[in-house]
Amino acid sequence: MEASSSTNSSLKRRAPLRCYYAEKPMLVVLWIADKPGRRFYCCPNYWVGRKCKFFQWCDDEIYECDKVLIPEQRQQIIRLEAKVARCYKREKFYTMALAFLLVICGICLFNCMRS
């Protein structure tokens, strides 16, 4: 009997249907030092308005080594997303420059054919 109860605690918890105010709970991810990446459900009014105190963890507590690895990986993701954004910006600039050059070449060609 003990084995089945420990197995059930490690299973992913289901999202609650409603909070104390009958609102649909939202999923929040913590990024604080001792719980990086830890998720929980709370009422949309948890911090504002009626201040509903509904709270439920979504996953089990993380291991100590993950408290270091998760923030490092998150920072790497942020750096890579910024790099991708810069590449898209550069690509857009080059596309516009190429279009401008094609227009100029077309005008020059048209003027050459008229003369």
Rank of each mutant, 00 (worst) to 15 (best):
R50L: 13
K51A: 12
P16M: 03
A99S: 09
I78W: 01
N111A: 14
L109H: 12
R38N: 05
R38A: 00
V48D: 15
C19F: 04
Y63L: 08
I104E: 14
P36I: 00
E81L: 08
E91C: 13
C42W: 00
P36E: 01
F54H: 05
L102W: 11
A99Y: 10
L80V: 13
Q76E: 11
K83Y: 07
C112L: 05
A82Q: 04
C58I: 10
P25K: 01
I78T: 08
P25I: 01
V103C: 04
K51D: 07
C52S: 02
I70Q: 11
R38P: 01
Y46H: 02
R90M: 06
F55D: 05
K51N: 09
V68A: 01
L101D: 09
M96L: 09
L102V: 10
V29S: 07
M113C: 08
C42M: 00
C105S: 04
L102F: 10
C105P: 14
A85Q: 05
S115H: 06
D59N: 02
P71F: 00
Y20Q: 11
P16V: 13
I104R: 15
W47S: 12
M96F: 05
W57S: 02
C87W: 04
L98N: 09
F54I: 06
G49S: 06
K51V: 05
C43Y: 04
C52A: 03
L80M: 12
A99N: 09
Q56A: 02
P44T: 02
A85T: 08
R50C: 09
K89E: 10
D60Y: 03
N8I: 11
L27T: 03
P36R: 00
L69K: 14
L30Q: 03
E61I: 02
D59W: 01
I32C: 10
N8H: 07
A33I: 14
Y94L: 08
K83E: 07
K35Y: 07
L17S: 03
Q76C: 12
R13E: 02
R18Y: 13
C58W: 02
A85Y: 07
A33G: 08
I107C: 03
Q56D: 02
E61N: 06
E64S: 15
F54G: 02
V68L: 03
